[in-house]
Structures are given as structure tokens and as C-alpha cells.
């Protein structure tokens, strides 16, 4: 589905990523874990076109999308639920969801049944149905996260990037978010997940990559990584 080859990217003239390669097969969940500043979010941003890679290639469904503007990548069916959620705070919940389906209104993606999908999204996230007329900014942190995820689903995407869905949430909501991710995985949604909570992220993934200083240090099937002492070391600095 998605193939990343020798990706270099960063901000200004300073690269944060120094050559990352991995791929996400169709209908699987891959997670990127690593400490803060390792380059997880930068990887996501470079894939979805929020920043331009300085070197390397990004392939979506075998087609080169390296350096495309974000809106063009989205129109090809890659949804990105960004770090910090980035919902539109002064628009209603419904409007946020409809905007998630924007390319379907403009004919850049097949329209299908937008209203039906809206209903389905609200079924998946019942809290959103209760609050569909409210301004998104008045939602609690957990509800905002669900909105961000639902908004990404509204594209009818081929693949979703989920960046730190648990950030800033109370632990009980973190669990809820991971339950939803597991649910989406059951439905066969292709996902690339970035998380600080390594253990939880690995429990809902098929495969994991550990980023350290802009490079992949360890990778392997998710169950295997969970018990890897090197993963613990990367987080807490013990074990050296």
C-alpha cells in the first residue's frame, strides 16, 4: 500500500530523518515508536505532504507521490489524522466530518454515500452523534480525538496515518482510543500509527519500527518488539 524508501526530511535545512525505509502492506497496521524528537511525526508529515522530503521516495499504491502538496495526496486516498488533532474548533462536529469528505464533494474522489458514511461514523463514535451540532472546540480532549479519527475515516481512505492519538488524553480515554484502533483493524483498515505509548501501540499493530535519532534502530513483528529490552532502553535510558 505505502512504501517509504530512504526518506530524508526535516525543517529548514536541517534534516531530522536520515534515511528511513519501510512499507505498510494493505489491510495491516504498522506502528512507529520511539522517544520524543526521534522523528516519528516528521515521518508522518513527510508522507502526507505537510513537509517536502529532501531525499528519498514515497510511493502510494505503487505511484510516486514524493513532494506532492498535501491536498493532492489526500485526494489520492491517504487520510492523515495529525499530531495535536487539529480539528476545526469553531466549526460544528458535523461540519468537521463533512470537511473530512471534501474531495468526495468536489469530484476528486468518487462521491458514494456521504450521508451514509456520516451516519456510520456516528455509529462508530456515538459520542459524536450526541454532540453533532456543537462547535468542535467545546468537545473534551477525548471527544476531539475521536472526531479527528472519524474525520479521517470520512475520506473513505485507502489508508490512514494516525499521529499520537493518545496525546494529552487521560489514561481511561487512552484505553478507549486504542479499543477503537483495534476495532478499525478488525475492519481491515490500513493504518500507520505513531505513538508514545509503545506497549499499547504494539498491542494493536502487526508490525513495529523503533525510531532513534531519525533512523530505524529496531524493527520486527509487534509481539516480538514488546518484549525487546532495547525498546525499554530507548525510552528510559536504563539498560546501558
Amino acid at each position: 500500500m505505502l512504501t517509504i524508501d530512504n526518506l530524508h526530511a526535516g525543517y529548514g535545512c536541517v534534516d531530522v530523518l536520515h534515511g528511513i525505509s519501510f512499507s505498510v502492506p494493505k489491510a495491516s497496521v504498522v506502528c512507529l515508536i520511539g522517544s520524543n524528537g526521534a522523528g516519528k511525526t516528521t515521518t508522518m508529515r513527510a508522507i502526507s505532504g505537510m513537509i517536502k522530503p529532501s531525499r528519498g521516495a514515497v510511493l502510494l499504491d505503487g505511484q510516486d507521490i514524493t513532494g506532492f502538496d498535501a491536498y493532492r495526496i489526500c485526494r489520492r486516498g491517504l487520510a492523515h489524522s495529525p499530531e495535536g488533532r487539529r480539528i476545526f474548533a469553531n466549526l460544528s462536529v458535523t461540519d468537521n466530518l463533512l470537511l473530512g469528505a471534501f474531495p468526495r464533494f468536489t469530484g476528486n474522489r468518487s462521491k458514494g454515500d456521504v450521508q451514509g458514511d456520516l451516519e456510520q461514523a456516528m455509529e462508530l463514535f456515538p459520542r459524536l452523534r450526541e454532540r453533532r451540532q456543537q462547535l468542535a472546540g467545546t468537545l473534551s480532549g477525548g471527544e476531539q480525538q475521536m472526531l479527528a479519527m472519524a474525520r479521517a475515516l470520512m475520506l473513505n481512505p485507502g489508508m490512514i496515518l494516525l499521529d499520537e492519538p493518545s496525546m494529552g488524553l487521560a489514561p481511561i480515554l487512552v484505553e478507549e482510543v486504542f479499543r477503537i484502533i483495534a476495532d478499525l483493524r478488525q475492519r481491515g483498515v490500513t493504518m500507520l500509527l505513531v505513538e508514545q505509548f509503545a506497549a499499547a501501540a504494539l498491542s494493536v499493530s502487526d508490525y513495529g519500527y523503533v525510531l532513534e535519532n531519525g533512523r530505524i534502530s529496531v524493527h520486527g513483528p509487534a509481539e516480538q518488539l514488546r518484549d525487546d529490552p532495547a525498546v525499554h532502553a530507548a525510552y528510559l535510558g536504563c539498560g546501558h
Binding site: P82, F88, L91, D95, L99, F102, N108
Partner: peptide, 17 residues
């Protein structure tokens, strides 16, 4: 709504296509 979204957060609006 696309205008409102661009006004609120240009980068996120780009992610909406």
C-alpha cells in the same frame, strides 16, 4: 466550509484535500 477550515488551520485544511 473549506474557506472556514482554511481560515482556522491552513495546514489541517490541506490534509482534508
Amino acid at each position: 466550509k473549506a474557506i472556514a477550515a482554511t481560515a482556522a488551520d491552513r495546514e489541517a485544511a490541506g490534509l482534508m484535500g
